[in-house]
Design a binder for these strands. Structure first.
Lengths: 204, 204
DNA sequence: TGTACATCAGTGAACGCGCGTTCACTGATGTAC
DNA sequence: TGTACATCAGTGAACGCGCGTTCACTGATGTAC
């Protein structure tokens, strides 16, 4: 899994920080392409970025630091994606539907990066230091959208926090299960997402 | 992550096949303990099982073969778990609730083995040979449980296949999200699971 | 404007390590006679 | 019952490889004078 794009032209003086972004993008691409089957190595990231392995150490302390940067980058992308999906639509129900569809679409378009967002706390022994959940803004976004529906009298939800949790769970499952079982006879388009949204946010 | 249990006593003649089971158990344990952070190696499996690496080749062709056997073993465990959870209870709604709780509990008790059940088809290029979805019997079980509720007039579902899919998605998400974001303020006990079950299977 | 020089972006060689896999082997155990 | 022998379960050494990380380095580029 090696992508050659011709010989690299090195950054000019003062622009060395550019390489940092290139490394993050290369790592993200590699995560997506290898599909979590084989491990993402520092050397493979360097190859994908078209540089030598030691160059990474100018910008990151080690491999974990690179992956951490990918996670940060991905969660920002997800947040932006959600905001853009609802931008300009004043109707709260339409906004909620759009947000849920956008969440699922983001996950299906970047399944491995999405997965890595949540893979960092698995099996950290309970009680000991965890990484923050970088996808929390996405949950907050769903919660706000449900609350807007309630305030507009469009949702029967009596516990928006729990219903937002239920909806988040369902969207997460949709992404993960469709990624993990692509051959399952999935309902077409966004039908299932809309059903989940309607029932769990208590719309209709 | 190395578990020593004292020196192994080798199997007696004719009982060499026992080692196969021990290797599968060791691999499963290793998957669960390393939490998918570092890769599961053949040598590490051998260390966990208390044998030398070459011994594995008497029972498996390679590392992938071992992991495949773990997947098969785990899905059989899951199916058994579901069947035992509903055994002896004639009420279809109670059976459905029990099955959903059992599904979630199994996933939370073996998060990494559960994950591996679905990790095999991620990023296999679309259209090319996939592994069968070994968790399909679990879906079929949920579907049957919902159909029984419908027949008993206890569910308003008009499309049990889609509703079973929605429920499966939600349970899958519950396991994955609670595993990936353990610090999130989760509702206590099985409350969320019951909510998801009620709304998605259209009970009440 | 010209030039010496410091800085910066990145390279290439080398290290020790754990990996998957192979191969010849060992020694206990059951069986044939 | 005794013993020679085949079989079986597993070992130990060795291989080539890619890995993460270190180190001294190179050569282009901007800057001070």
């Amino acid at each position: 899994v090696e992508t050659t794009e011709g010989p690299r032209t090195r950054n000019r003086r003062g622009e060395g920080a550019r390489l940092r972004e290139e490394i993050i993008r290369a790592a993200a691409r590699l995560i997506e392409e290898t599909g979590g089957q084989e491990p993402v190595t520092l050397r493979a990231i360097a190859r994908t970025a078209g540089i030598t392995a030691p160059s990474i150490y100018s910008h990151f302390t080690d491999l974990g630091d690179v992956l951490e940067a990918v996670v940060t980058s991905t969660s920002q992308l997800l947040a932006t994606h959600l905001e853009q999906a609802v931008a300009g639509d004043p109707d709260p129900v339409a906004r909620l539907h759009a947000a849920c569809r956008a969440y699922a679409r983001f996950g299906l378009e970047h399944p491995q990066q999405y997965r890595v967002l949540f893979a960092r706390n698995a099996r950290v022994p309970p009680g000991r230091p965890r990484k923050p959940i970088t996808a929390m803004p996405a949950f907050a976004f769903l919660l706000g959208a449900i609350q807007a529906c309630v305030e507009a009298g469009r949702s029967r939800s009596t516990d928006p926090v729990e219903d937002a949790t239920a909806l988040w769970v369902a969207l997460h499952g949709y992404v993960g299960l469709q990624t993990g079982a692509p051959d399952f006879p999935w309902p077409p388009d966004d039908h299932l997402i809309d059903t989940l949204t309607d029932r769990l946010a208590r719309l209709e």
